[in-house]
């Protein structure tokens, strides 16, 4: 199974990611999901989310998830990009694509990776309101 992982502070280039897609002739499904920062966190209006990340562990845990995904045997490739740092409302913080032969497998695998990520990958988010938007982005010195 081919895999691509990026944890980046840069805005996600979704058009570029889609343009870079490769799939073999036996593949009939390419499912991708883009997670976008909402303008509301609970009852509060926000302008951004500050994502912090323990990068070496996050990369390791993502690769372990990809290893488990590969064991399912039905996925040809997975590509995942997670943005960290300050992500404004309306911009994407997560992009994931799964390629497989059939759509059911691709949808299920995409959902599975996201669900598992939210259990084990050390990334955290902190809401940013308009009042504190001018403060520097919060991140751990070691991230």
């Amino acid at each position: 199974m081919k895999r691509y992982l990026s944890i980046t502070r840069d805005p996600l280039d979704e058009a570029g990611l889609v343009a870079d897609r490769t799939l073999s002739s036996g593949m009939g499904a390419a499912v991708y999901f883009s997670g976008v920062v909402r303008g509301q966190e609970g009852a509060d209006a926000i302008v951004a989310l500050d994502y912090s990340c323990f990068v070496p562990m996050a990369e390791h845990q993502f690769q372990r998830l990809f290893d488990r995904l590969a064991q399912r045997g039905s996925v040809e490739s997975v590509r995942l990009v997670h943005r960290i740092g300050r992500v404004p409302v309306g911009e994407s913080s997560l992009w994931i694509e799964v390629v497989s032969a059939h759509r059911a497998e691709a949808f299920a695998a995409c959902q599975w990776v996201i669900d598992e990520m939210k259990q084990v990958v050390p990334i955290w988010k902190k809401p940013v309101t308009a009042a504190d938007a001018c403060l520097p982005s919060d991140s751990n010195p070691a991230s």
């Binding site: 997670g35 562990m57 913080s93 939210k118 259990q119 955290w124």
Partner: peptide, 9 residues
Amino acid sequence: SLFPPVQGG
């Protein structure tokens, strides 16, 4: 390392 429940995505 010690940390709270994770919140990626």
